[in-house]
Design a protein around this nucleic acid. Sequence first.
DNA 1: CTATAACCGAGACGGTACGTCGGGTCTTTTA
DNA 2: TAAAAGACCCGACGTACCGTCTCGGTTATAG
Lengths: 193, 193, 193, 193
Amino acid sequence: MPDPSRRSERSRRAILTAAMELVREVGYRKLTIEAIAARAGVGKQTIYRWWPSKAAVVLDGVLAAVNEDPHDLSLPDTGDVAADLRGVVRAIVAELDDPELSGTTRALTVEMQDDPEFAEMVRERLLGPQLRAIADRLRAAQEAGQLRADVDPAVAVELVIGPLYHRWLLRTAPLTPDYADTVTGLALRALAP
Amino acid sequence: MPDPSRRSERSRRAILTAAMELVREVGYRKLTIEAIAARAGVGKQTIYRWWPSKAAVVLDGVLAAVNEDPHDLSLPDTGDVAADLRGVVRAIVAELDDPELSGTTRALTVEMQDDPEFAEMVRERLLGPQLRAIADRLRAAQEAGQLRADVDPAVAVELVIGPLYHRWLLRTAPLTPDYADTVTGLALRALAP
Amino acid sequence: MPDPSRRSERSRRAILTAAMELVREVGYRKLTIEAIAARAGVGKQTIYRWWPSKAAVVLDGVLAAVNEDPHDLSLPDTGDVAADLRGVVRAIVAELDDPELSGTTRALTVEMQDDPEFAEMVRERLLGPQLRAIADRLRAAQEAGQLRADVDPAVAVELVIGPLYHRWLLRTAPLTPDYADTVTGLALRALAP
Amino acid sequence: MPDPSRRSERSRRAILTAAMELVREVGYRKLTIEAIAARAGVGKQTIYRWWPSKAAVVLDGVLAAVNEDPHDLSLPDTGDVAADLRGVVRAIVAELDDPELSGTTRALTVEMQDDPEFAEMVRERLLGPQLRAIADRLRAAQEAGQLRADVDPAVAVELVIGPLYHRWLLRTAPLTPDYADTVTGLALRALAP
DNA sequence: CTATAACCGAGACGGTACGTCGGGTCTTTTA
DNA sequence: TAAAAGACCCGACGTACCGTCTCGGTTATAG
């Protein structure tokens, strides 16, 4: 309904900034649209006009932060899959283990559970590209004969990421670099030709 | 503070029943303490007296349902790890794929994200026993020389469950029996001696 | 500030028409500037540019309707004050009793209560002329010796109109032609020489 | 729906007090339910639970103020209708002319215009008794042969009050004690036997 | 015959208040 | 003394309009 060409860039940025600050300060659960509007110096309607929910605001905030430094998502290809994979896995574990960074990620994951449209957005704009980057590296390794060719790269990615994700969300045990390496090792054994 | 011996069993059951019904009808997100109290014909205080949060009520409801038919959690040991494991994994996938059954599980998982005490409860009373049952079977296989001995059984369990869990929560792809077998197969290869 | 010579006659009429329609449809209380603008196919600013409030718009609407057929406000002078007065009073009562017509009049009266500038406008442009017309007829009767000369004609008018007005606004009893005659009779007795 | 026996007297009084204070401070138009709740230290719901509108709150406030000193509404009967009537009319004019006192009265009158239920309440609980008190005195005078018997006392009251009311609401001229006496004199002449 | 200034439509914006919902606490009555 | 009932304070919700503010576009005098 609203005309995006009329949209105030100033307000948009203020809202995203305020939202990210507040998430850090009070947590996603206690984040309210009213507080975002107040902090951003914006009317509530301006938020409701452009976002369907606070989750969508936070997603945009995360995406803005991610795209701010548009580091290449794609993995290095040194020729050594094991090393390359170990690198990302360690990085992922580090990020998940950082209470600051993982707070919003938890929030997004939570929100995906009962908002299918939002879930689709997260998958498309945030999750998909990250998983695809890893899948691409694994596919290259398959083509180089370093990994079995009869495994769907997407499944291969889940084999590595799944365990980390499980431990992260359920907090059944600490997420350590060692654990990252252990999981990487096991996955590589499963995928060995 | 309250004296558990004075507790009304009738009210307790009515509350758990009402909570489980309502979760099914409106979903966990729209579940309210007020609605539970109204449906159960109970004062709100009676709920607040015995449970710290609606999540705790639902957890008790789930546990009551699970323990109603106290089927043995432990896996069969036919001597064939692969077959035994494939069995549970398929069962788990089936349960996760059932929208009715997995609704509350999603809710519990969600609630664990920002309530550490509740998370501990879920781990102790619901999750732990289930994971331990699988770990036990894998340990037996290790001792029988069918699986590598140098992998922590808990980690081995995560290797199998993690991917399912990832796909279930993020809905990146459908959870099928085929997928269950694929993951089982890959995990077993990783754990092979 | 704005230049009246540039004013769009088309918009002016559309606004007044829309306002009067909406007042009839939803009542003055629920009348909004936004609705007027929308109905008139006009930007809100165009209303704010030319009128200080929605009350002023409605007043202009009423005046436009009244002046559309520019019937002479002045009372007939048949020589018989009683008859002439009874005529207007009946007409006034009839108008006040018409729910359609009196709706906007009520609105104007209401708005006068807390907007002195607007009140002045109503008095000057709508109310004054009407009251003066009656006062003029009574003054003529005084000069003809038919009524006491020591009563301010304006006060005399209030003596007749006041009771009608009271009953109309407070709805303490129905406004009937009979009542009109009763009040006229009493007033004439008070004013008799 | 709510059970009046459970009602908090403390809250009721705080709300009425806050409402009357705020009406005096900011006027009826700018009076908001939120402000009343805030000033009274009360949840908004508590107001909505017991009153249908801010007008109803103010009416209750006025009634509470009026009934606080339960002065007899009935007029004195010195045997001299003229004197007795002149007394009340002067008192009424004085009250209407007091900007402080008449503020709420104006508000109630305004609100009556588009809320029939509220109008009925005002008539029943506030206006009726006052008008009836005057009517009673006039009826006594009729029975004593001091006034014409063929005029409905209620109409007689309107003959006196109507003009004051008209001048008060439309502010066509100042409301002075002199005017009170003039109107009283005219009305008595009309009602003379 | 432009150009430059105004009005105009549209509608986004910062705000205020609305009336509602539910949370968690407190109070009253009943068993 | 637990429990039912439900009023209470509170905070946030999402909506409706307010009055102000751009934004292009279209007239319509003035150079």
